[in-house]
C-alpha cells in the first residue's frame, strides 16, 4: 500500500523563503570569513606538502619487485601475476638461470619484467597471488611521464622501487 508522506505545513515566514535564504547566506559568509581569517584547516598544498610520512603500511601504491635480506630478487618468473592481473599490465619473459650458479635448475628468473603503469589499477592481485612474496605494492603513487614508453616500468625500475623487504618467509631457501 502506498504510504502518503504528509508535507510539513509552512508558516508564512517559511513560505516567503527569505529568512531561509538569508540564513544560508550567513552560513556561506561564515565559511568565507573563517577561510579569510585562516581559521579553517584547508586542503594540503600538494606538491609542496605531502602526506607520505603518515601513509599506512598497507598503502597500495606502485607494484614493485622486492629483494630479501640476502639481497636476492625473489621473483621466480612463475607468471602467476601476469595471469591474474585484471588489466593485463604485466609482461614477463622467463629465463633459465645459467648452469653453475647456485639456483640453476632450481628456479627460473625473469629476463624481462614490465609493468605498464598506464594499465595498472593498483588492485594488489599480483601481490596476493605471488607464491614467492616477490611482488609488493609499495608507497610510490606519483607515477608520471611524458610518453607512454616512460610509463612502462621495466625490471630495473621495479627492483629500484621495490627495495629490500624484511621479514619475508625464507623457509624454502634451505631446501633448494
Amino acid at each position: 500500500m502506498a504510504i502518503t508522506v504528509s508535507r510539513p505545513k509552512l508558516n508564512w515566514s517559511e513560505r516567503l523563503y527569505l529568512p531561509a535564504i538569508l540564513g544560508g547566506m550567513a552560513i556561506t559568509f561564515g565559511h568565507l570569513k573563517n577561510m579569510l581569517l585562516g581559521r579553517t584547516k584547508v586542503t594540503m598544498q600538494y606538491p609542496e606538502q605531502k602526506w607520505d610520512s603518515q601513509m599506512p603500511d598497507h598503502y597500495r601504491g606502485a607494484p614493485a619487485l622486492v629483494k630479501d635480506e640476502g639481497g636476492r630478487v625473489r621473483c621466480v618468473a612463475c607468471q602467476l601475476c601476469e595471469f591474474i592481473c585484471p588489466p593485463r599490465a604485466i609482461r614477463i619473459v622467463p629465463g633459465e638461470i645459467p648452469l653453475g650458479e647456485r639456483f640453476a635448475k632450481v628456479e627460473k628468473y625473469p629476463e624481462k619484467f614490465d609493468i605498464d603503469m598506464i594499465r595498472c589499477i593498483y588492485c594488489g592481485m599480483c601481490e596476493e597471488v605471488c607464491p614467492e612474496q616477490a611482488i609488493f605494492l609499495r608507497k610510490d603513487y606519483a607515477i608520471t611521464g611524458y610518453t607512454r614508453a616512460e610509463m612502462v616500468h621495466d625490471k630495473e625500475k621495479l627492483i629500484e622501487i621495490g627495495g629490500v623487504m624484511h621479514g619475508l618467509v625464507l623457509k624454502w631457501n634451505e631446501k633448494k
Binding site: 556561506t28 565559511h31 568565507l32 573563517n34 577561510m35 579569510l36 579553517t40 584547508v42 586542503t43 598544498q45
Partner: peptide
Amino acid sequence: RVSALIQDRL
C-alpha cells in the same frame, strides 16, 4: 576563488 573559500578550499 570566492566559491572555493566558501567551500573551505583555496
